[in-house]
Each structure stands twice: as structure tokens, then as C-alpha cells.
Amino acid sequence: MLVHSLEVETSPDRVVVLGARGFIGAALVAGLASDDVPSLALDRTRLDLLASNAASTLAGFILPTDCLVVISALTPDRGKDAATLMKNLSMGQAVADAIAAAPPAHVVYVSSDAVYPDDAALADERTPAAPASFHGQMHLVRETMLAAVFRGPMARLRPSLVYGRGDTHNGYGPNRFLREGQAGNPIKLFGQGEEMRDHISIDDVVELIRRTIRKRSSGVLNLVTGRSASFRDVAVAVGHALGRQVEIVGAPRGGPITHRHYDVAARIRAFPDFTPLDLQSGLARALG
């Protein structure tokens, strides 16, 4: 589902990163620096996408040879309500207006697998997007907003649950479990942690974004490992990574159990020589 414009990997003249202080953005900027790829790291202190002049300001930054990576978003830990949705859409509109006024060479939109329906037990890039949450709806609309104004190659990357060093969130999963374990607290599961999810290391997410940039790719790609694990298995793996016995406690379940697996055939086709970290290796890296 991802089509490469460039046969041979070629770094762009510059990468403009929106959301450069966030979890993924900061890791990407560091990765680009290690590749010696010039980048313009824009965070809220340099560009407030909710400001009335955001579009024109951003347009002033973009050069025609740039690759623009859009990661900036108010994540669910900052709000799951309609007001947050509308702010996110306003930010998306500002980016779309800027792209319309000053199109770059390549756009990479970092979306989310929240665009897929919650009951899609086995998903791939062809799974119809039917987001149940404002967060998923926001990403889907923003994908559409940018595609509507940009005629060049645009990649829509949809990561699953991302974990690793530098996480600015504390969502249910590896990062929170690591924090709980490191603090000597029990790891608290919903139910018995039966739900299967695909957890991907930040290092793999950054690597896939870098490859997408270098191949000037367009289309949709899920940033996933293809190896789902239950939250209980993740908790056990965290214990192993910490090298000590960690108490794991269940709690009454609020909703039904859902699972999510990914078919990664499209990723294999896009990047045949890419292999994601297994959970244990990823957790070890997260611990540094």
C-alpha cells in the first residue's frame, strides 16, 4: 500500500518536523541528526498551530524541496473530548492551508491505528477506517484534509501502541508498566490483561519514518510489528526486562475483551529488509 517514488534511498535537502518536542517527534529529530539530514524542528514554542496566523507562519518555513513530517497533535492524555477534537482539526486545517500555499516535495503524516474500528481483530492497510474515538476521527479527517490540498507524494503512517524512551504519555501498556515496575509498584491490569495488542518500539517507528522519507513514499502503511501480545504478557516481559519479580494485579473489567492483530504483508513489501524489535529487546532499549 506504500509506493516509493525513489528507487534508491535519498535523503531530502531538509525535513521539517511538526511536533518536534513530542515522543515521536523528538526521537525522529534525533534520528535525522544521526543521519546528518538537516531538519527544522518545530514545536509549540516556535509555531503554535492554534494561533490565527499559524498557516502563514508555517508556509513561511516550508521550502519546495522539503519533506514535511506532521506529527503534532493533542494526544488523548491531553483530552478525549469534542473540544480537543476541534483543536486538533484546527491545527490540521492550519497545516493544510500552509501546504496549499507552500507545497513541499513530500508530506509524511503520522496518523494512528485508532482510525480502524475497535473490533477489527485482524487489520491491515485495506481495513476500512471507521474510528470510534474522537482521536481516531481526528486523524482520519486530518489525513483527508492534507490529501485534499497536496498533489505530491504523501504517506499516511498509522502507528499502533508506541513505547520506548522519551515517552511523554503514560498510556496503558509498556511505558506505564515500566514506570510502575521501576517504582516498585504492582503493575495494574484491566481485567487480567487478556487483550492482545501490537506494541511497537519508538526506535522502529522512527526507522520506518526515516525509510519513508528517504524513499519519498506515498500511500498508507501501518507502523506495527505483526506480533501482538497480551497486556499480561507485556507485564511479564517488563518484569524480565527489569530483572526482578514484579507483582501483577488484575482489576474488574469495564468492557468486553477485544484483540488487535496486524497483517504486515504490506510492510514486508514496502521494506523487505526491515525487521522490528521483539518485545523483550524493545523493552531493554526502553530501559536504556
Binding site: D124, R126, D263, A265, I268, R269, P272, D273, F274, T275
Partner: peptide, 20 residues
């Protein structure tokens, strides 16, 4: 479409994961 990729997945999982 999904089952057509059985070999691709298996090859990646059993071989290319270790030797790209």
C-alpha cells in the same frame, strides 16, 4: 488476498528476520 501472502510472511518470519 490475505492467504496469497502466506509464503511472504513465512519467509520473512523464518528467514528474513535473521538475514534480510
Amino acid at each position: 488476498d490475505y492467504r496469497k501472502d502466506w509464503v511472504l510472511r513465512a519467509l520473512h518470519h523464518k528467514v528474513m528476520d535473521k538475514s534480510p
